[in-house]
Design a protein around this nucleic acid. Structure first.
Length: 554
RNA sequence: CUGCCCGUAGCUCAGCUGGAUAGAGCGCUUGACUACGAAUCAAGAGGUCGCAAGUUCGAAUCUUGCCGGGCAGGCCA
């Protein structure tokens, strides 16, 4: 439990005491929120508690503040002042930051991990790109975000499972097979009409070529239907393997790869449909089978099974999400592109119809990515196969920069990805700013070893000689980290960690510039090495959440 | 026409439960390497928070209406 939480507890206790001894009227007390005030003269922490309580207690905020201040008991508190309309500003004893740093060091390399998630079982499904072509930069954003969110929520004490849903059934896969077949025939000299909804990517031609390399022209002899079935299987395996490889080289792995086909093989789709019918939320009309999603706030009812008997993708999605909840997840998080946001109401409706609380399904929408190069928009389209793929992007700007750029913005703002900026190995690039701080620290330890300075990070140092603003601000920031993890996880907002890491790096660079670590009095060197150790751990931990390397040298 | 997201400094974006003088990076101006990495630091200029009402002691934040940009509105995915 950190200082802030303990102080908040002390405030709540003081307020409760004031109520029980009659100094304040009876009434519900609001939750205590502490903030770091905008100015140092307002103390170390401040709260608007008295102003909030003024509403529920119908009392003068300054009176409430006085009652709280008069009753508060907190070991590190130096003094509390009432300011403005009713803020309470808390000034802590100078030593509190030294004790805080000691606690941080005692926590070891895992410092930052919290239990705020309460081991809640949460599944995060992301990317889930159709295995019909290479990943593009939009998938990259989802992949970077999803994996960072998983890291973040794991650090915050959630029990996380990452899943990729393989769309290996339905139209698009048939189109894939037909596209490969067309390329195959073309390569063998036949003139064919390319399928209207076919995939034009070069990778399709490559696949056809590999089939020829391996098996020659023998598939000319089998029936078209059988040929397409074979090509479908070959292409699927190949595309899936390529997908996995791309993702792995982007630092993204999954615990489960879930096949859509398996839902049909297990009759899960039929079972889900039967259940919906039984519960009275699905019906037959015009030869099709419909979900009565309007019963749960959707704009219109939706077709689950077409009049030709073929299930829509929605049918397997319902079965899939039913399957997820049956696996015991408290929360199921889906990360979708903005172009799918219209499906949220029907998906939630389906879950409600099956009897699940739709709140347990969280759909996070990521806005579109635009690539800019030389100040110009790079257009992309999967259909025509033009545009920048994820692997090209990684090759171009590097894994770390790509991940950082994808993660550093909040999900719901459209992302302008500046290729030139991401590529530049210079001070313009925020990734290197953070990584440089880590590398500098590593360099200090190398120098230390060379100079024969002894330092044991687990030994207690006299930290009280850390007195400059550079040192104290840095400790303060490091002390905020667990809370930042908890808040970012709660808000599903890994970009906050990117920001935090950047701010921490900034404070470290200032410290580094203002304070020598090596070559000063031995006690001061030891204390500063302790501070540097803590800084390095938190930098590494936060970069780890982002999936960005923490280099020793660069 | 309807729904969702966005509109904050020249550019790209933060801004947590409504709170004190609205922040960061880049870019721009000016300084700092004869000691741990200058991919760094220090200082400065730069904003009617799209517009207008409303709620409130108090609004970038909540509500409504407009304006502008993006994305959706299939028995496509």
């Amino acid at each position: 439990m950190n200082v802030k939480e303990r102080l908040a507890g002390a405030i709540a206790r003081a307020a409760a005491a004031a109520v029980s001894d009659g100094a304040l009227p009876q009434g519900a007390l609001p939750e205590v929120f502490l903030e770091v005030p905008p100015e140092k003269s307002f103390g170390d922490y401040a709260t608007n508690f008295a102003m909030q309580a003024a509403r529920t207690l119908k009392a003068n905020p300054r009176k409430i503040a006085e009652a709280v201040v008069g009753r508060i008991e907190f070991p590190w508190l130096d003094r509390a002042e009432i300011a403005g309309p009713g803020f309470i500003n808390f000034f802590l004893k100078p030593d509190w930051l030294h004790e805080l740093l000691q606690e941080i060091l005692d926590a070891g390399p895992a410092y930052g991990n919290t239990q705020s998630g309460g081991r809640q079982k949460v599944q995060i499904e992301f990317v889930s790109a159709n295995p019909t072509g290479p990943l593009h930069v939009g998938h990259g954003r989802g992949a970077a975000f999803g994996s960072a969110l998983a890291n973040l929520m794991s650090a915050a004490g959630y029990d996380i499972q990452k899943e990729f849903y393989i769309n290996d059934a339905g139209n698009q896969i048939d189109n894939l097979a037909a596209s490969v077949e067309a390329r195959y025939l073309e390569l063998l000299g036949q003139t064919v009409e390319f399928p209207e909804d076919g995939y034009h990517g070069k990778d399709i031609i490559d696949t056809a070529q590999r089939i020829i390399d391996n098996s020659g022209s023998r598939y000319l002899l089998v029936s078209p239907a059988e040929r397409r079935e074979i090509f479908k299987q070959i292409a699927l395996e190949e595309k899936l393997a390529a997908l996995k490889e791309d993702l792995e080289s982007f630092g993204v792995t999954f615990d489960v790869w879930f096949s859509e086909r398996s839902l049909f093989a297990d009759d899960a789709v039929a079972a889900a449909c039967a259940q919906l019918r039984e519960k009275g939320f699905a019906y037959d009309k015009d030869g099709a089978f419909w979900l009565r999603s309007t019963a749960f706030g959707d704009d219109k009812d939706r077709v689950i099974i077409r009049d030709n008997g073929v299930p829509t993708y929605f049918a397997s999605d319902i079965a899939y999400h039913d399957n997820k909840f049956r696996r015991g997840f408290a929360k199921v998080i889906n990360i979708w592109g903005a172009d799918h946001h219209g499906y949220i109401p029907r998906m939630k409706a389906a879950m409600a119809a099956l009897g699940y609380d739709p709140e347990r399904l969280e759909v996070l929408i990521l806005q579109m990515v635009s690539l800019y190069q030389g100040g110009e928009l790079v257009k992309m389209s999967k259909r025509t196969g033009q545009g920048v793929t994820l692997s090209e992007l990684i090759e171009e700007v590097g894994r770390d920069a790509a991940r950082y750029f994808f993660i550093m913005r909040s999900l719901d703002s459209q992302l302008d990805f500046d290729l030139d900026l991401a590529k530049s190995h210079s001070n313009e690039n925020p990734v290197y700013y953070v990584q440089y701080a880590h590398a500098r620290i590593a360099s200090i330890f190398r120098q230390m070893a060379e100079a024969g300075v002894a330092f044991d990070s687990s030994a207690k140092a006299d930290l009280s000689c850390l007195t400059s603003a550079w040192e104290l601000d840095l400790i303060r920031k490091i002390g905020d980290y667990p809370e930042e993890i908890a808040a970012a996880a709660r808000d599903r907002a890994p970009h906050r960690i990117a920001r935090y890491a950047h701010e921490l790096a900034g404070l470290f660079h200032s410290f580094y510039n203002g304070c020598r670590v090596l070559g000063v009095e031995p006690e001061l060197t030891t204390a500063r090495l302790a501070l540097v150790t803590a800084s390095q751990r938190v930098l590494r931990h936060s970069l780890g959440i982002l999936g960005v390397d923490a280099p020793e040298k660069m």
